[in-house]
Write a protein that binds this DNA or RNA. Structure first.
Length: 824
DNA sequence: TATAGGCATACGACTCGGCATAC
DNA sequence: CTATGCCGAGTCGTATGCCT
């Protein structure tokens, strides 16, 4: 925020009021003469425009035991900060109705000092509410406004002179348009390459050598070292400085709504910003001629005024992580999963060599452009979800992209409070917080499966189990253990929920669930463009609905409720176990169940009678709870845990009728397992699920073991990757991946928390940690064959082979024996 | 810069008993 | 005879990454 952006002009005249449609794109604020002005960036008839608005002020609520103290609060002034006005309002906090004083201030900077004056000097002061809500969020939440929506505005010529590069007006009034047309924001993606041969990244010394920009109308890689026969997507600049200035020019020309990058918060944009300063390049793409604003130290955030910067990696890591089925969150891995597109490998050594020897850089340029292209394609898929989450929670897309689940839910609840005249309950004090963090509660029920091979499995699951439990039992902080005419007892002793009045959380959740059902109906008949948006919207609704129950158990919020949280999981356990009993009594055999799902075998009965039984169960479920048919699987495998005969939970494999295999929990889908181990396990699973005869499975296993012994498997498949979760020094024991991290650091490379460590187990040494080598330290075949056979192959197939009566351990010993026999 | 709990598994650190060896 | 060290088996705690 800059106070000096605006200057008052000398004249004042009567100005005509104009009316128009307005698409809101970005929101910020500035100060002038000790008054705060919201800066709304958006488009009027397609033209990017800045609107200044002075009719919204920051505020918070004060609870007083003596109402007459309100007059004293009204008078508070401290330097440039003062109370503008106050008003009394009736608000509910949890279930207590209170009369609270809403205190308006002249600027957001006044919140902290005025708050502490009230605390110190007002005798009847009891409590302050909602003082921690940032100004911009307050504005959006109070009005239920959101980015990329359409508004009807009245505005007039600005009295102030500004240094904005965009036209600037005074906003007189703004309301959300009745008709909302889908707005497709213009996206520009960026990626840079730097000449960094050492491992540490240093903008002081290492120049940016390539920058690529990708949008619908521009797809180019920029560099400043000329070479012969450049591809037509390459543009040469005179120098690095000229290149950066050209990039800035392109960004301005492109006039995009959104700029995206992959890890651009942490790398590309901060690097450009720093590098531009060092080489004295002018790089000011902001509408007030500001550059890239980088804040935060360990978690950097990069902002450009007037263009919403979305770091696709940040969003994937924070929100989509769980729903993405990929080993790592690298651009290559994520593109493979979400776009089905392979990223071409880069050989930076040869790139840098070509750069130094002034050879053709076409391959380097293509690589650079590929990255911004993939990021652009990912943006097409992901940006709609970010926008919809922003709309749902009234957060700017910039914030929605960088929010955690808890922040999305918190903001959504904040937006909905006014429908209940509620305020956010105050955040916990230090001691209460510690108490909450020590408290845990029982979670979900998991059925103990019997190991074996099954045929014809029917799977059912609850639609949104926890949200529907909350709605159907009216579970909310203000309904728990409240004296009431009608109540529902929780399975938890001594806890009940009042049914007299709909609770706030059930009310909000019901709305989310209904809205999602409605959208799913619409999707069926929508065209492709609508479908993208509707899909993003239903994703946002699902995300926020599912995260809402977790809010009860999240210590850092005012909505925390131990009794609600443990009642929800207790209800979950109650219903799933009751249904299991019913199915068993009806003569079906239940194979497995985890939290909200049930796996059933017909056991000689008819499919029809199973479905009838499920229908009956559904009529008996309360409220909106519902058990759905998820699918039928022709074969399935459940295994025993290591060294026992009892069935293992959370690890199984199913094959549907069309032959598609779904694997859960097994090594095949674990990141910290070697490719060879995973590959062999998957292959064995496939063979068994498709009922291949045992001798085929055995000969496959034999084949692999012989190949490993003969060192015929590539090193690449022997690499084990494990994430380093904390600094090397904090580990109590020296696990293999910690030993590998040490080696990595000795080689001068990064080994910080979060780094994925790759290593191969080689022969020299006693402990496995001693045998660890980095992949680049190994020659082909350097690996420890015994380790891979005994610790990677055997454990991954032993329990699976067991199910069809193959003794993998014996088999492998026999192979080893016979190969030794041959040898001697 | 934390939505929750439940679960399987690997591996190092440690303990303990058996044994060989040195003194 | 005791002191020392090595080895393997068993137990425990730490660590990771999965499932819903």
């Amino acid at each position: 925020m800059k106070a000096q952006t605006l200057k008052e002009t000398a004249y004042s005249q009567k100005k005509p009021t104009m009316k128009s449609k307005f698409i809101l794109l970005d929101l910020d604020y500035t100060e002038f003469n000790n008054r705060v002005y919201l800066e709304l960036t958006g488009r009027i008839n397609g033209k990017k425009t800045v609107l200044l608005y002075d009719k919204f002020l920051p505020y918070f609520y004060v609870e007083l035991s003596d109402e007459s103290d309100a007059d004293r609060i009204k008078q508070i002034k401290e330097g440039d900060f003062y109370v503008v006005s106050t008003e009394w309002l009736e608000k509910t906090i949890i279930s207590e109705e209170k009369k609270l004083l809403r205190v308006y201030l002249n600027t957001p900077r006044a919140v902290k000092p005025i708050k502490s004056i009230i605390r110190k000097e007002i005798k009847s002061f009891v409590q302050i509410y909602e003082a921690n809500i940032v100004f911009i969020k307050r504005f959006l939440v109070d009005n239920s406004f959101s980015m990329f929506s359409q508004y009807d505005i009245e505005y007039e010529k600005s009295e102030m002179e500004s240094n904005y590069t965009q036209p600037c007006f005074f906003l007189k009034s703004i309301i959300l348009s009745k008709e909302q047309q889908a707005y497709s924001p213009k996206v520009l993606s960026i990626d840079i390459e730097t000449l960094s041969e050492g491992e540490e990244i240093n903008p002081e010394k290492e120049p940016i050598i390539f920058v690529s920009l990708y949008s619908q109308s521009l797809q180019k890689a920029f560099t400043y070292q000329k070479y012969e026969n450049p591809e037509n997507f390459v543009e040469f600049c005179q120098s690095e400085k000229a290149m950066l200035e050209r990039i800035c020019e392109c960004i301005k020309e492109q006039d995009a709504d959104i700029i995206t990058g992959y890890f651009s918060d942490g790398f590309d944009l901060p690097y450009i910003s720093k590098r531009a300063r060092i080489i004295n390049a002018s790089f000011q793409p902001g509408y007030d001629n500001s550059g890239i604003r980088v804040t935060g130290s360990s978690f950097k955030v990069a902002k450009i005024k007037g263009i919403t910067h979305l770091d696709i990696y940040r969003f994937i890591r924070g929100i989509m992580n769980a729903s993405i089925d990929s080993d790592s969150l690298s651009l290559a891995a994520v593109s493979r999963v979400l776009l089905g597109e392979e990223k071409h490998e880069a050989d930076f050594d040869s790139f840098f060599k070509a750069w130094k020897n002034q050879e053709s850089l076409n391959r380097f340029a293509a690589y650079n452009l590929q990255d911004s292209r993939l990021c652009y394609l990912l943006s097409e898929k992901i940006v709609p979800s970010i926008i919809e989450l922003g709309k749902l929670s009234s957060l700017p897309a910039f914030q929605a992209c960088r929010s955690s689940f808890s922040m999305l839910v918190e903001s959504h609840l904040l937006k909905r409070e006014k429908e209940f005249s509620m305020l956010s309950p105050p955040l916990p004090e230090e001691s209460e917080l510690r108490k909450r963090q020590r408290t845990s509660f029982e979670g979900a029920f998991v059925y103990q499966p019997s190991p074996g091979f099954y045929e014809s499995l029917y799977v059912f699951d609850f639609r949104s189990l926890y949200p529907t439990i909350i709605v159907s039992h009216n579970i909310s902080p203000e309904t728990v253990n409240r004296s009431s005419k009608k109540k529902i007892d929780s399975p938890v002793e001594g806890v009940w929920f009042s049914q007299d009045k709909e609770g706030f959380i059930p009310y909000v959740l019901k709305d989310l669930i209904d809205a999602r059902a409605e959208i799913k109906r619409k999707i069926a008949s929508a065209d492709d463009r609508e479908k993208t948006i509707l899909n993003a919207r239903q994703y946002a609704l699902k995300t926020v609905a599912n995260a809402t129950w977790g809010f009860f158990a999240y210590p850092l919020t005012g909505w925390y409720s131990y009794d609600c949280a443990r009642s929800i999981t207790a209800f979950g356990r109650h219903y799933i176990t009751t249904i299991i009993d019913k199915l068993k009594k009806a003569g079906f055999s239940v194979i497995y169940s985890d939290t909200d799902s049930i796996f059933v075998c017909l056991d000689g009965k008819e499919e029809k009678s199973l479905m009838q039984e499920i229908d009956k169960i559904n009529t008996e479920l309360p409220g909106i709870m519902e058990l759905n048919f998820e699918g039928k699987f022709s074969t399935g495998i459940f295994v025993s845990t290591k060294g026992t005969m009892t069935g293992a939970k959370k690890r199984y494999a199913l094959m549907s009728q069309d032959g598609a295999i779904s694997v859960k929990g097994f090594e095949t889908i674990r990141r910290n397992w070697s490719e060879i181990g995973k590959e062999v396990q998957m292959k064995v699973l496939e063979m068994i699920l498709s009922k291949k005869p045992n001798n085929e499975v055995e000969s496959y296993i034999k084949d692999v073991v012989v190949k490993i012994r003969a060192k015929k498997i590539e090193n690449r498949k022997m690499i084990i990757t494990t994430q380093l979760k904390k600094p090397i020094s904090e580990y109590e024991s020296r696990a293999p991946h910690v030993a590998a991290a040490e080696r990595l650091r000795e080689a001068g490379k990064r080994a910080a928390p979060g780094t994925i460590i790759s290593y191969i187990v080689c022969s020299e040494g006693k402990k496995i940690a001693d045998k660890v080598r980095l992949p680049e330290e190994c020659e082909q075949g350097d690996y420890d064959t015994d380790y891979y056979i005994n610790n990677q192959i055997l454990p991954s197939i032993e329990k699976i082979a067991d199910v069809v009566g193959i003794n993998a351990k014996e088999l492998i010993t026999k192979i080893t024996q016979s190969s030794l026999d041959k040898f001697f």
